[in-house]
């Protein structure tokens, strides 16, 4: 396994020194931009690093950052759960029923082309300005990549493997548990990583449309009040959230799919 693993690791965990360097570069650009701006403009356009940090600390101390992050996380989590479970059930059904596949294919293809976030205002009308409308946006965003990946993963199972399970007189449940689940798992996890990462986007857009809490709400409020430090804090927190989600899903993926790194060229 040796060298290939190392190569993968190097791509996924960049050198920490370089990482710090690129962070420093960004801060440097920021300071440069601050110097280039007039004092009066600076106030409205670009906060100083110190302003952002103090703002961040204040929001942490009074607990509001945690509260808004919690709201967004809850929307994302529920949306992910709803979208994933629906997509799994439907993906399995589509892969096993020709009729359903033909019936749903045009719908799926069309809705994949549709930018789901455009639905957010409509969903706000249907489900109100509360939690539900954001959960639905997130769920829709997560739904399509998982549905497509899972049904493709299931229908591309090697016919030879199916024959093996028939030969061994596997029950329907055994075939599901020992063949279909592991065979479709890589495709599912890819879909989950794609969908899960964009779930944050769904939650934020939902909050832009109508909300009274959440990180997207903070961004919107910052815009209304010309409070750029607040916007910076909210945006950076969202970025961290997406990075953590991506990282966690990637970690799960590598854990579960140990076998994939074994000698695939």
């Amino acid at each position: 396994m040796g060298w290939r693993d190392k190569k993968i690791n190097r791509l996924q965990n960049p050198n920490p020194l370089l990482y710090l360097l690129s962070l420093g570069l960004v801060l440097l650009l920021w300071q440069g931009a601050l110097l280039a701006l007039e004092d009066s403009a600076r106030k409205f356009i670009l906060p100083t690093t110190a302003q952002v940090v103090t703002r961040f600390l204040r929001l942490v101390v009074d607990g509001s950052l945690l509260q808004h992050t919690g709201v967004t996380l809850l929307e994302m989590g529920l949306g992910l759960a709803l979208g994933t479970s629906t997509a799994l059930v439907l993906g399995y059904a589509v892969a096993h029923s020709q009729v359903l596949a033909h019936l749903l294919e045009p719908i799926i293809v069309t809705s994949q082309a549709m930018p789901v976030v455009a639905l957010a205002p409509l969903l706000a009308i249907w489900f109100g300005p509360g939690l539900v409308s954001k959960v639905v946006v997130c769920a829709l965003i997560v739904f399509f990549p998982i549905l497509v990946n899972v049904s493709a993963g299931l229908s591309h199972i090697d016919n030879g493997f199916r024959q093996v399970f028939r030969l061994l007189e596997a029950t329907r449940w055994q075939r599901f548990r020992w063949l279909e689940v592991p065979a479709a798992l890589p495709a599912f996890l890819t879909g989950l990583r794609v969908g899960g990462t964009s779930a944050a986007m769904g939650a934020v857009v939902g909050e832009f449309v109508a909300s009274s809490a959440g990180l997207g709400y903070l961004v919107k409020q910052g815009q209304n009040l010309y409070d750029t430090p607040l916007m910076f804090v909210a945006i950076l927190t969202l970025t961290m959230l997406a990075l953590v989600t991506y990282g966690a899903l990637g970690l799960i993926e590598r854990r579960i799919l140990k076998w994939r790194s074994a000698g695939k060229t």
Partner: peptide
Amino acid sequence: FQQPTLLPWRTVAENIALPLEL
């Protein structure tokens, strides 16, 4: 079969054990 049709997510031992496990 003509092709080995071993399940790639199972080790050699787990593949051989499949009929017994089922």
